[in-house]
Simulated assay, not measured.
Amino acid sequence: MELVSGKMTSKGQITIPKELRDKLGLREGDQFKFLIENDEVRIEPVKKKLLSQAIGRITTKEEINLEKIREVAHEEASKYILSEGLEHE
């Protein structure tokens, strides 16, 4: 187990030391989860699922038309908003 220390700012921000960022492959914008047990806090990066990982699982005999998918999604979202009486803010 390694011990690397850091310091919290007045805004509650903690800098992750560069050596840890490099070792763990962390980048700007990465998200973390905080696990609290007793008086200890464990910080873990949230694993992101990349679209490129999912694409390999999609199989179809037809060409995928992204514009049509967007159009259908927009229509369905509009129907939902109207049916729920929601308004655009």
Rank of each mutant, 00 (worst) to 15 (best):
I58T: 07
I58P: 02
D30K: 02
H74Q: 15
G25V: 02
E44F: 11
L26K: 03
V41F: 10
N38I: 03
K18V: 05
N65R: 15
I64G: 03
A77D: 10
E76H: 09
R57Y: 08
P17R: 07
K18Y: 03
T59I: 07
E44T: 01
T60P: 01
K68Y: 11
E19F: 09
N65L: 14
E67Y: 01
A73N: 13
K68W: 15
L82M: 13
K18H: 07
K33Y: 12
R70P: 02
I58A: 08
K33I: 04
I58S: 03
R27D: 07
E37Y: 05
E62F: 08
K47Y: 11
D39T: 13
G25L: 01
R21G: 07
E67S: 02
L66W: 12
I69F: 04
D39I: 10
S52T: 08
K18P: 01
E44S: 01
I81F: 06
T59W: 00
K79R: 15
L66D: 00
R70C: 04
L26W: 01
A77V: 12
E19H: 06
E76C: 05
E44A: 00
E28M: 03
S83H: 02
L82H: 06
L35N: 03
K49V: 15
S78K: 15
E71T: 05
E63Q: 06
E19D: 08
A54Q: 03
I36L: 13
S52L: 15
Y80K: 03
P45F: 04
R42T: 06
K47G: 01
Y80V: 00
R21C: 10
E62Y: 09
K33D: 10
G29I: 04
F34D: 05
I43V: 12
Q53A: 12
A77R: 14
G29F: 00
F32D: 01
T60F: 01
K61P: 00
L20A: 08
N65W: 09
F34T: 15
E71G: 13
I81W: 05
K47P: 00
K79N: 02
V72P: 02
T59L: 07
R21S: 07
K49D: 09
K48S: 12
E40S: 06
K47W: 10
T60C: 13
L35E: 10
V41T: 09
K18Q: 08
I81D: 05
N65D: 15
D22Y: 03
I43K: 12
F34Q: 11
I36V: 00
K61L: 12
G29Y: 04
E19M: 11
A54K: 08
L20Y: 03
V41G: 08
Q53C: 06
K49T: 15
K61Y: 06
L35S: 00
Q53K: 14
R42S: 13
A77L: 13
F34A: 13
L66G: 06
L51F: 09
E40M: 07
E37T: 00
F32T: 04
Y80P: 02
L66N: 06
T60L: 07
E44Y: 15
D30M: 06
E40D: 07
A54F: 04
I36H: 10
E63M: 14
A77W: 14
G56H: 04
L20C: 09
S52D: 15
L35T: 00
E63D: 11
R57K: 15
I55T: 01
G56K: 14
K49A: 06
I36P: 02
R42I: 13
Y80D: 00
K18S: 11
I55H: 11
R42C: 07
K23W: 02
K23Q: 04
H74F: 09
V41H: 05
R27Y: 04
